[in-house]
Amino acid sequence: MAENQQQHHVTPLWVYLGVGGALLVLTVVTVAVAKVDFGVLVGVSSLNIIVAMIIASIKAILVALFFMHLIYDAKINMAVFITALLFLGVFIGLTMFDTVRRADVYELEEGPIKPKAKIYQNQ
């Protein structure tokens, strides 16, 4: 526990500027890509959302690894971050199991009966 020189890792300047530039480029790319219609992939509403999410994830990973020093830090921080995303996925995924599959057996159990429930009609 001697007072050794704290080996704080100092990220070189070009890493920050490089990552910053990459993020800006990706922003432009994602805006451009949004205008192109990729058509509909079976099962998923449209391919655009997948492409947009991939680009956003790349940007997020860049920010997390370099700006937030996850790449140099102790692995426990990375584990915490990945657990967060994992359980966010579980939350959305399992809820989707319910909302998307409601009409499995009977069509009428899917959509709302009528936009306005009766109680509000006469108010």
Binding site: L23, T27, T30, V31, A34, D37, S46, N48, I49, A52, M53, I55, A56, K59, A60, V63, A64, F67, M68
Partner: peptide, 22 residues
Amino acid sequence: GLYWHLVDMIWIFLFPLLYLIG
């Protein structure tokens, strides 16, 4: 800094989801 980068990361996801649909 960590907090600020996370706020930026959330906006990175918000932007395509809200503004670039369809």
